[in-house]
């Protein structure tokens, strides 16, 4: 049945974060991701964590949805932190066979965990507060200088937004086809890798056939609605940078500054 994954979902709202220019949000997000991985000590990491928390609170989206998005990646977090735990250098404080835990390893594990959590929460914050259309619109505009070198900016943005629109539809469809083939006795749960891969054919073929049929119908529907490419198009939701966007840029600048200061003056933890 339809999976309720909150990661990547959009929650309409009217918070400060919702109202930020999507271009500003996207740029800040990219800068923030870089910064997260340039933190060398707990203090610097603390600055980024505080910034993440600030954004979450300002987004006015119930915290439980953020927790749900974390739940999806809990295994990745555990896995990477365990790996890091055993990869530390220095004197072991615990050892068994080839496995050893050092203070260095513990610090690494903790830091990597916090980094991933910040990463997931901030990207959730971006997708929760920005509709796919706004996001692709922002990408289209940020990339518009590339049009000068005949890069098909509008087409790519349109492709992205159609893809985002049809992901849930195709997921539902996959589910339906799988059920139908199971009803005909298809065995998808047992056998080795090759057998399982072959069992996907009865699902993938109808899925592709239907995707092509859909593509044709969507194109017709778009033409019926006077679509003729990107030239001369206007947008209902106009975006322009305002005071709050400037504020947001100042905030991210302060975070960058803070992280640099912490990195220089407090030295490397790991």
């Amino acid at each position: 049945m339809v999976r309720d994954v909150s990661f990547g979902q959009y929650f309409p709202g009217n918070s400060l974060i919702h109202r930020l220019d999507p271009r500003a949000k996207l740029l800040i997000f990219i800068a923030f991701i870089v910064i997260i991985f340039c933190t060398f000590n707990y203090a610097a990491l603390g600055v980024t964590a505080a910034f993440t928390a600030l954004f979450l609170i300002l987004s006015r989206i119930p915290i439980k949805f953020y927790f749900k998005s974390l739940k999806v990646i809990i295994f990745i977090v555990l896995f990477t932190s365990v790996i890091n735990l055993f990869y530390g250098v220095g004197d072991p404080i615990w050892q068994w066979w080839v496995f050893k835990i050092t203070w260095d390893g513990i610090h690494r594990a903790v830091m990597v965990t916090i980094r991933i959590i910040c990463l997931i929460l901030s990207s959730s914050c971006l997708t929760f507060t920005t509709s796919p259309t706004e996001l692709t619109d922002a990408i289209e505009r940020l990339m518009s200088p590339l049009r000068a070198i005949r890069f098909p900016v509008h087409e790519i943005a349109m492709m992205m937004s159609l893809a985002l629109r049809f992901v849930p539809t195709l997921m539902e469809e996959t589910d339906k086809i799988m059920q139908a083939q199971k009803a005909r006795g298809a065995d998808m749960e047992s056998g080795n890798v090759i057998k399982r891969a072959r069992a996907l054919v009865p699902v993938l073929v109808p899925l592709f056939v239907s995707a092509f049929r859909r593509a044709y119908e969507i194109a017709t529907a778009m033409e019926c609605r006077c679509y003729r490419g990107g030239s001369g198009r206007t947008r209902m939701k106009t975006i322009h940078m305002g005071r709050r966007d400037v504020l947001a840029f100042i905030a991210i600048a302060l975070v960058i500054g803070g992280v640099i200061v912490c990195n220089i003056f407090l030295g490397k933890t790991v």
């Binding site: 309409p12 259309t133 159609l162 629109r165 859909r214 969507i218």
Partner: peptide, 8 residues
């Protein structure tokens, strides 16, 4: 389904 092109 195949006429709606946006996610909102």
């Amino acid at each position: 389904d195949n006429q709606l092109v946006a996610s909102i």
